[in-house]
Design a protein around this nucleic acid. Structure first.
Lengths: 218, 218
DNA sequence: ACCTGAACACCGTTCAAGT
DNA sequence: ACCTGAACACCGTTCAAGT
């Protein structure tokens, strides 16, 4: 059986399909990510993708998995503010490289393991810095909106109950920070909203007054 | 010419089409908003919609126009924090009523007049409260991310230049707050990012320390 | 002036067929 | 085991035709 010309047709794989899809999105936007177009980028028919990915939805989920794993993890000893700053900077370069990413990430129906791992790491940083589970939960939401570019609900938006118990159970040993928040924090949307808003308003007021004090009066 | 049975076929209009589309999205999500499905909701063929809306993209733009106009405008005399709070609450009920709204609003390619009007009102509140144009611009971004649920770039993300000059010119008399920001503020993405992050980190630190002081030690 | 039916170039996905 | 071609039920949109 003759070898095919070197590198002309390396076998497809889940990874190669996902990378190709990300590439198409980078080049022509999220709407350009169609099974046919991704297949074409790989020199293959659309139907071949189904051997490596169950369908379009799972392809999109897989893209998110890849993206989340790009976010940097500072070593555990790092001071909390610095750790958050590193993550934020990293999330930011990610969004710059893939401008379509926030739209996709905020739109997927479920939190998958890589995202859970990411959230767990942020929560652990906060818990270790002395934040209560409740405040850590709120902090996560305040932080990840603007700064990390996306937000995920840990509690079911309808019932306010924690996510699927089966998923929570599967996370206990691997995701201690997240588990603790799910067990010890309650989700009060109104309280969290008021808190975030006041935090921002107070910060802005402080900035305005400092601004007036340092610059020449206009 | 005989009258048709009362109310059985009131004529289509841009407004009726947009309301029907919003209704479909509320019921079955944004993906369910197809020309055929919206037509069906109105008891009409998909092609009839083209008499009232140039195409799918403009239908989506029109939906955003309608949504933005739902956001409440407190009277001009209101104290600035209270004014922002009113807007934020109003944006929040909007998002609760139409959970698909943020995804759509952050995804449209251009800022249209109703959105510009909304942004102008927020900016005017801030300017009147003594914020510099630069700080008002930053404040808008910090605020509208989590709190109002969506973010719009006023400056071209590529060039950092203000939006289309023709559009800016058309806004001078009607949108004074926005015009002033476009003329007097510069857009430094990195500086704004650092500012927002520090504002949040400092606010969180303050909250953590207050938390520890008021609650029993754990 | 407004609505429609047929048609076109696209989707995601199934399935039987190829190697 | 992996890839494919034809097919199906959908898209958005054009256009000629109806009233």
């Amino acid at each position: 059986m003759p070898r095919q010309p070197a590198g002309r047709r390396e076998p497809l794989s889940r990874e190669r399909v996902l990378y190709a899809a990300i590439d198409v999105a980078d080049r022509d936007g999220l709407d350009a990510v169609t099974m046919r177009r991704v297949g074409q980028a790989l020199g293959v028919e659309a139907m071949s993708l189904y051997n490596h990915v169950p369908g379009k939805q799972e392809l999109l989920d897989g893209m998110v998995d890849m993206l989340v794993e790009e976010i940097e993890i500072p070593p555990a000893a790092t001071e909390w503010k610095e750790a958050i700053r590193t993550r934020a900077r990293s999330g930011r370069t990610l969004v710059r490289r893939h401008p379509w990413a926030p739209a996709l990430m905020t739109t997927r129906p479920a939190v998958r393991v890589p995202m859970a791992t990411y959230l767990d790491r942020v929560l652990t940083v906060l818990l270790d810095a002395g934040f209560s589970p409740q405040l850590a939960h709120t902090a996560l939401h305040v932080l990840d909106s603007r700064v990390l570019g996306f937000t995920r609900d840990l509690f079911d938006p309808g019932t306010q109950e924690p996510m699927d118990p089966a998923i929570v159970a599967s996370l206990t040993s691997t995701h201690p920070g997240m588990t603790r928040i799910l067990e010890e924090a309650t989700h009060d949307d109104d309280a969290e909203f008021a808190f975030a808003l006041d935090l921002i308003l107070d910060g802005l007021e402080r900035a305005r007054d400092a601004d007036g004090a340092t610059s020449a009066r206009r």
